[in-house]
Simulated scan of single mutants.
Amino acid sequence: MTSQTDNESTEKTGPAPVMRFLTLGGAEVHVVERGRDQRTTFSGTTYGFTVHGWTCHGCNRGSDYYDRWEEWEARDKANAHAEKCRAMPKSTAHA
């Protein structure tokens, strides 16, 4: 027998979470990598950082695709959401 958490994590698609938080109702909030933000200075030096986003798998709120956050920023926003969100995990059963 598998638990609802096991079913929930195996049915999600997309990148593996870098970190996870729990809402007050028990749903997961995931922080994931979305690629790299690469830029060039006036002198031609290239620099960049890994872009992160977050999604609540209870209420479906999260960062917009165009949000360009470093890991610590996405972590803080996901954690702040999880502290207040009362969403429960979505049911996998269909009526």
Rank of each mutant, 00 (worst) to 15 (best):
77 K>M: 11
54 W>N: 06
36 R>Q: 14
6 D>P: 03
8 E>W: 03
58 G>D: 03
40 T>I: 13
30 H>C: 08
70 E>I: 15
65 Y>L: 09
9 S>H: 08
37 D>W: 03
19 M>C: 15
54 W>L: 02
59 C>Q: 00
59 C>G: 02
52 H>N: 13
31 V>A: 05
24 L>M: 12
50 T>Q: 09
12 K>T: 05
32 V>R: 15
9 S>E: 11
63 S>E: 01
50 T>P: 06
75 R>M: 06
31 V>H: 02
30 H>G: 01
60 N>C: 01
47 Y>C: 04
9 S>C: 07
37 D>C: 07
5 T>Q: 12
51 V>D: 04
35 G>C: 02
64 D>Q: 06
53 G>P: 00
74 A>K: 02
77 K>C: 10
67 D>N: 10
29 V>E: 13
36 R>T: 12
22 L>P: 02
50 T>E: 13
59 C>A: 04
50 T>R: 13
56 C>E: 02
9 S>K: 12
39 R>A: 11
7 N>A: 10
69 W>K: 08
24 L>T: 13
52 H>P: 07
61 R>F: 00
33 E>I: 02
27 A>P: 03
38 Q>G: 05
26 G>C: 04
62 G>T: 03
76 D>T: 14
60 N>H: 01
13 T>Q: 09
65 Y>C: 05
52 H>F: 14
34 R>H: 03
69 W>P: 03
10 T>A: 11
45 T>Y: 07
33 E>R: 13
18 V>A: 14
43 S>K: 14
28 E>Q: 15
38 Q>V: 15
31 V>F: 00
72 W>F: 12
65 Y>M: 11
52 H>M: 06
48 G>R: 13
14 G>Y: 01
33 E>F: 01
19 M>Y: 04
42 F>Q: 04
44 G>I: 10
21 F>T: 11
22 L>G: 03
24 L>G: 07
51 V>N: 04
37 D>N: 14
39 R>I: 01
53 G>M: 00
63 S>Y: 01
14 G>V: 07
51 V>Q: 13
38 Q>F: 09
16 A>P: 09
72 W>Q: 11
16 A>R: 15
58 G>Q: 05
21 F>P: 06
17 P>G: 02
20 R>H: 00
36 R>K: 14
43 S>V: 10
14 G>C: 00
74 A>D: 07
47 Y>D: 04
15 P>K: 10
28 E>P: 03
77 K>L: 13
74 A>I: 08
11 E>I: 09
28 E>Y: 11
76 D>F: 11
71 E>S: 08
46 T>H: 14
30 H>M: 00
60 N>E: 14
68 R>V: 07
57 H>D: 03
42 F>S: 14
77 K>V: 08
18 V>T: 14
25 G>S: 10
53 G>A: 15
18 V>Q: 04
69 W>R: 06
30 H>S: 12
41 T>L: 05
19 M>A: 08
63 S>C: 01
7 N>F: 06
5 T>V: 12
69 W>F: 12
65 Y>S: 13
45 T>W: 10
10 T>L: 08
57 H>R: 12
